[in-house]
Design a protein around this nucleic acid. Sequence first.
DNA 1: AATATATTGTAAGGGTACCTGACTAAATAT
DNA 2: ATATTTAGTCAGGTACCCTTACAATATATT
Lengths: 172, 172
Amino acid sequence: MPNLLKQKNAAGKLIEFGMVRHLADNVAHRDSDKGERQSMFQGQGKILLALAQTDGLSQKELATKLDLTAQSTAEFVNKLVKKHYVTKEKSVTDRRMTIIRLTDLGRQTATDESSKIPNFLNVLTDEELDQLTNILTKINNSLYEEIDSSDQPSLFKKSQQVIKDHIRDWFL
Amino acid sequence: MPNLLKQKNAAGKLIEFGMVRHLADNVAHRDSDKGERQSMFQGQGKILLALAQTDGLSQKELATKLDLTAQSTAEFVNKLVKKHYVTKEKSVTDRRMTIIRLTDLGRQTATDESSKIPNFLNVLTDEELDQLTNILTKINNSLYEEIDSSDQPSLFKKSQQVIKDHIRDWFL
DNA sequence: AATATATTGTAAGGGTACCTGACTAAATAT
DNA sequence: ATATTTAGTCAGGTACCCTTACAATATATT
């Protein structure tokens, strides 16, 4: 049986981490251009990330991959089109489908954004970095299991795959 | 100089952690009542948390503590009133002020929510829990510094204090 | 070939989290 | 007694998501 106090300690720190990160994010956004409130893991950012992995997906494919409704997907894609980050074109083989492609600007934005190493990792020693990586691996796997078991059968396996793909690509 | 590869590994895991947590949160919310999309660290949840620490604050005090505009604060408070989580009453000493107080229902919701230990910590050993706590302490402090130095002078010190207070209360 | 069904996408509308700007009401300062 | 500061409200806007309803295209069935 695990030590409850130690768990509570860690949980507290994790909650704190969540709150502080949120705060730090806000600060960062406040500094930069006013309109840029994209977190890269939500909404338009998610789309960009998915396309950076696999360009030329249909809206439906994007929706499925990212576990969004078709309507939300359409909304974000349209916003990205307005910003010239992606383009829409009707598929020739199946004219119901719309193919979404990154523009150069879009691709650059996606890779720029996702290749940043957070500053706060500079305060950790090599040993601590190893420990953290190891611990997060365990936690992430546990979360995947929780997601997988609790809800709709395999719908979320896809999201898991997107995340893992993204992480893999991130190292190249 | 820190090992860049190790940093990148850890950063990747951290990003993954962020994404997976987001996912897991969604799943959790989807299971429960449909209307309940509160993350406890945002909007209405933040207010509840602050009041659970110190009941009977004015709207202005809430806004300052939580680094929200007075307008956003008013919006969230009004929503909470509608849900019977808090009550509004004009202060007798200074009739410009509105005092916000938790109802029993509100207090219960706040404490219920914030006293949960995330399941995923069950997969860690005692040693790993210690390591994680230690690492997150360093990271959080680093983030506090970043926040503190980069932006408006001392506005964010208050937020830091709220978080720390919350964490402290969390152990009682 | 003609009709029925399934798939992709759009339109409209709603809810939550925030913000800015404009404006009262009450308290305090001059 | 007037001017200013402080607390709060109202209106309106953006981003993120969802649901319900509906049009167009593709495929399956008769």
